[in-house]
């Protein structure tokens, strides 16, 4: 039994805070959990906090993009927050630009951005 990443509900927003380096099984579980929770709660926004991640490989990078796409299909906007400079540089070197994924510097700005999106202004 592997660890699972918790998906927390705050109002209309789901918060996923990734604290440990992800193994493949955890990524698959997270994808399942997240899509189930979005449907169950009718959430309008998802925030994935990766400020604790020091290493992001192409697998995790793709996971972020996939999750964003899945939640968009389910009617929720995904924002990835707290990416470290080193992580951003690694992803660029890997040739990943996370197209279609919205990002914010930190959780606070992410929440603000979601609020703007739900108000239909961004």
């Amino acid at each position: 039994m592997t660890d699972r990443v918790p998906v927390l509900k705050i109002g209309e927003i789901l918060l996923v805070s990734i604290q440990v380096d992800l193994e493949d099984q955890m990524v698959m579980d997270l994808q399942d959990d997240l899509s189930n929770r979005i449907v169950a709660t009718g959430a309008k926004g998802v925030i994935i906090d990766i400020s604790a991640l020091e290493i992001v490989d192409s697998f995790v990078g793709r996971m972020l993009a996939t999750n964003a796409a899945i939640s968009r299909v389910l009617g929720a906007e995904t924002i990835v927050v707290g990416m470290r400079p080193a992580v951003a540089m690694t992803l660029v070197e890997l040739g990943l630009s996370l197209q279609g994924v919205r990002t914010a510097l930190n959780l606070e700005r992410g929440l603000k951005l979601l609020r703007r999106i739900s108000a239909g202004r961004a």
Partner: peptide, 12 residues
């Protein structure tokens, strides 16, 4: 371009 994309991924 790399620099701009990296900044954008961080949300700036």
């Amino acid at each position: 371009l790399k620099t701009v994309v990296a900044a954008r991924m961080m949300g700036a």
